[in-house]
Design a protein around this nucleic acid. Structure first.
Lengths: 237, 237
DNA sequence: ACCTGAACACCGTTCAAGT
DNA sequence: ACCTGAACACCGTTCAAGT
C-alpha cells in the first residue's frame, strides 16, 4: 500500500456488482459497506474483477485490493484460490433456468436448461474444468438444480437408473459447447494447409461463408442438442 | 545448476518416451542422443514429465532440466508455454482412430472415433481448453483427422453444410466427457445435503451402488454418444 | 542460429505478530 | 475470530552476452 489515507476515510469499492451485493448483505444499517469480509463479498468482488479484466486479472492480490484487505485476510474465508472459483460456480449456477421442467414437455425443458447453462458459463470457461470435477456435496445450489432436472426427467418417463448418466452426458455436451463459444474467428480455416485436406476445406468454406464465430458455435450447439434430445427419447420407459 | 560435470560426460535422459522419440529422430548415427534441441524432443520430454509428475510438474524449468538446456534455450523453439501444449495436442491427436470411417458404417465410425478421441485426452485434461479453441491452421495432424471424418460423413449421406456443425457438436461432447473421466469418487453424492434433494439422492444412490467412478463416467459417455449418433441420423440427406 | 546466466515481474500461500 | 506485513517458494518470460 503506497497511498496514505486517513483512518476514517470512506473505502472505495468497485461500483458494479460488488456494491450491490454489499448492500444486500449489510448487517448494520448506516455503516459504510465493506465492513467485514465474507463469502458473498468475495464472490461479488471476484465477479467485478472478471468483468473488468477477465480471469487473467483474477488474482488473490487484486481480489484483496478491491476488498481493501490484505491478501492473507482472504485465507480466513477461503482455503485456496480454487475455493474462490467454487464460490463463483455456485453464484453462476443460479442463472441456469430449470423452470421449464415444471411447465413444458421434457424436450423443451432439456433444451432451455442446456441453453441457459451453456450461456451462463460461456464467459467463464476457466471455471469449466473446475465444475466438471466438482463434488455436488459442498454445492447446494448446484444440487438444487439437479433435483429439479431429476424430478422433471422422472416425470417424463425416464428410468431411475438412467437419470445420472443422462444428466452427466448432457452436461458433458454443455461444457464442451461452452468452451467452443470462445473459439477464435476461423478456427476451422485450414489456411495454407488447405491442399492437405481438400474435402474438409470445401465444406469449411461452404459453411463459413457469411457466418460469424458466434453463429457457427450456435449452429453446432443447436444441432448437437437437438440430436442429443432426439436420441435420448429412445431411452424413455 | 549446482552439480559439477565434465564437459564430455554423457547426458542423462529420461528413459521413457523421451529416449524412444530421440532415437527415432536422430540425425547423426553414433552420436549420443540429445545433441540438438527441436520440437519433437521438447514434445517427448514434456510427455515424459507429465507421465512422471502430471501437468503440475510440467514447467519450463523442469522441461529445460530434462533436456539439459537452459530455460531460455526453449524459447528459441517455442514462443510460449502454450506452444508446448500445442505440440502435445498434435502428438496426441495421432492416437485418435479414424480408420472406421473407411471400413464401417457411419454409426460405428463415429463411435470408434469419439471413443478413441476421448481416451486419448482423458489423461490430458489441461489440454482440453487449449484444443477447444485451437485454430486448425497450424495443426496438420488435426486437420488430417478432420479430412477423414469429413469424407466419411459425406459418404454416409450427410449434407455438406452440416459437416462442420456435426463435427463441432461431437467434439464438444468428447471434450466434456474427457473432463468427466477425472471426476472424483462420489461426485454426485449429496452427503449431508441429501435432505435438500431427496429425489436426486434416491436416483444417485440407486445408480452409484457397486459402481466405480470410471464405470459411471463410461456409462454416461456411452449413453450420450449412442443418443447423439441416433439423433444425428435424422440429419442425413 | 542457437545457447547461457541472470534478472524481471509476477504468482499463490504461509505465518508470526497484532487486536 | 480475524486481520496485517513480510517472507517464501515458486512461476513464465526477457535479454544482453557469448559461440
Amino acid at each position: 500500500m503506497t497511498e496514505v489515507r486517513g483512518p476514517t476515510t470512506q473505502r472505495q469499492l468497485p461500483r458494479t456488482a460488488a456494491s450491490k451485493e454489499a448492500l444486500e448483505n449489510r448487517r448494520l444499517m448506516g455503516r459504510p459497506p465493506g465492513g467485514k469480509l465474507n463469502a458473498p463479498k468475495i464472490t461479488a468482488a471476484a465477479l467485478a474483477l472478471i468483468y473488468d479484466s477477465g480471469y487473467q486479472g483474477l488474482t488473490m492480490a487484486a481480489l484483496a485490493r478491491n476488498l481493501n484487505v490484505s491478501v492473507s485476510a482472504l485465507y480466513n474465508h477461503v482455503t485456496c484460490k480454487q475455493d474462490v472459483l467454487r464460490l463463483l460456480e455456485e453464484h453462476l449456477i443460479i442463472q441456469v433456468n430449470v423452470s421449464a421442467f415444471r411447465s413444458s414437455n421434457w424436450e423443451d425443458a432439456i433444451y432451455c436448461w442446456a441453453r441457459s447453462y451453456r450461456d451462463a458459463f460461456a464467459k467463464h470457461t476457466p471455471l469449466i474444468p473446475v465444475i466438471a470435477v466438482l463434488p455436488v456435496m459442498g454445492a447446494p445450489k448446484t444440487l438444487a438444480m439437479y433435483e429439479e432436472v431429476t424430478t422433471g426427467l422422472l416425470k417424463a418417463g425416464f428410468r431411475e437408473d438412467r437419470i445420472i448418466p443422462i444428466i452427466a452426458a448432457i452436461e458433458a455436451f454443455i461444457f464442451g459447447a461452452a468452451l467452443d463459444v470462445n473459439a477464435p474467428e476461423g478456427i476451422f480455416n485450414p489456411g495454407t494447409l488447405a491442399h492437405q485436406a481438400p474435402t474438409f476445406t470445401a465444406v469449411q468454406a461452404y459453411h463459413e461463408s457469411g457466418r460469424t464465430t458466434e453463429q457457427r458455435s450456435d449452429a453446432a450447439f443447436r444441432l448437437g442438442l437437438e440430436a442429443l434430445i432426439k436420441g435420448l427419447g429412445a431411452f424413455r420407459l
